[in-house]
Amino acid sequence: MELLKVNINKAGYYRNNDVINNVTLSVKAGELVGLIGPNGAGKSTTLKAIMGLVPVFNGCIEFARNAKKYSYIPEQPVIYEGLTLWEHLELAAAVYAMDQREFLLKAEDLLKLFHLTEFKHHLPTTFSKGMQQKTMLILGFLIGPLVYVVDESFVGLDPMGIKDFLLLLEIARSHGAGVLLSTHMLDTAEKICNSFLLMNEGTVVARGNLEEIRELCGLSQGSLFDCFLKLLERHS
């Protein structure tokens, strides 16, 4: 079942200066779609367009009826000054009208998983980049959505943080969630993603699972990294 369907004709930040064009994709239940491409390819703009965060947009974004709750985990943490970590969690729970008992159980479990329990009454503005990123992950997983839109959330995480993040993604997918993940970590993406979209210069230039990408590149045993370079050479 498709949880998210995206058809972006054009999107950007200024009129007559589109960053992305003709971007189509879908995310199914239990699927992890990897969005890859060089810097400036339009990956983050695509994710922001899906979330309605770009001023110039022409296209259609459709979430399934049962996917009304979705999480967007941005590359740069969004932290409210003056709110403690726990107050951030309480705010998210209030916005989504979470049951208080469910909130307390999930919040404490996530804080424990990411080793932030002792910091829950501290201000995230004083945290390291990695701790701020973990804060965003906790907020993203707290509400238990069916769709996760994730932008480079490996940045700043230590190896254990990455391991815990991937574990949560796997659990969410096993419960029917779908994930759209933008990342530069191609070795990790190759291991965890069901399919890939390669963007370059603002549009999708290749898509498919690893075998299909290999066939497209003519690299029967190539790694995702090898295929990535081959496709970029072809479209440069």
Rank of each mutant, 00 (worst) to 15 (best):
H115Y: 09
T24D: 15
G140N: 07
V33A: 10
G156V: 06
E190L: 12
Q132D: 04
I20V: 12
F127E: 02
H175C: 12
L139R: 00
K230C: 10
N66R: 05
A67G: 01
A107Y: 08
E215Y: 15
I61K: 06
N200I: 04
K28E: 07
K5Q: 08
Q76Y: 06
E90S: 05
D109P: 01
T84F: 02
L166Y: 05
A107G: 05
I79K: 10
M160E: 14
R207L: 04
L229S: 04
M98L: 14
G176W: 12
R65P: 01
F141T: 01
V95K: 03
V23C: 04
G42I: 12
L181G: 08
R65W: 02
E190H: 12
A67C: 01
G156A: 08
M185G: 03
V150K: 06
V205P: 03
N17W: 05
L166W: 06
N39I: 04
I171Y: 15
L113G: 05
L116N: 00
K134C: 03
E31L: 10
E190R: 13
R15C: 05
N39R: 08
L111R: 00
K28F: 07
S223H: 09
V147I: 13
Q132R: 14
G144K: 11
G161D: 07
Y14I: 14
G34D: 09
A206M: 11
Q133C: 13
K120W: 01
L168M: 13
D18W: 15
L167V: 07
R65H: 09
V27T: 02
E2F: 04
F154D: 11
L142E: 00
H88S: 00
L89E: 02
G34I: 09
V19C: 12
H121F: 13
N200A: 09
V147R: 02
L169C: 15
H184E: 05
G130W: 12
Y80T: 01
G208V: 10
L83T: 04
K163T: 13
R173Q: 13
V33T: 05
A67L: 03
S26H: 13
V147H: 07
L4P: 05
N209A: 05
T203G: 06
I61Y: 06
L123G: 00
L104R: 14
F165L: 14
S26I: 06
G12K: 14
A94Q: 04
R15L: 12
R214S: 11
N22E: 13
G140Q: 12
K43P: 00
V205R: 07
L35F: 01
K106G: 00
L198S: 01
G156Q: 10
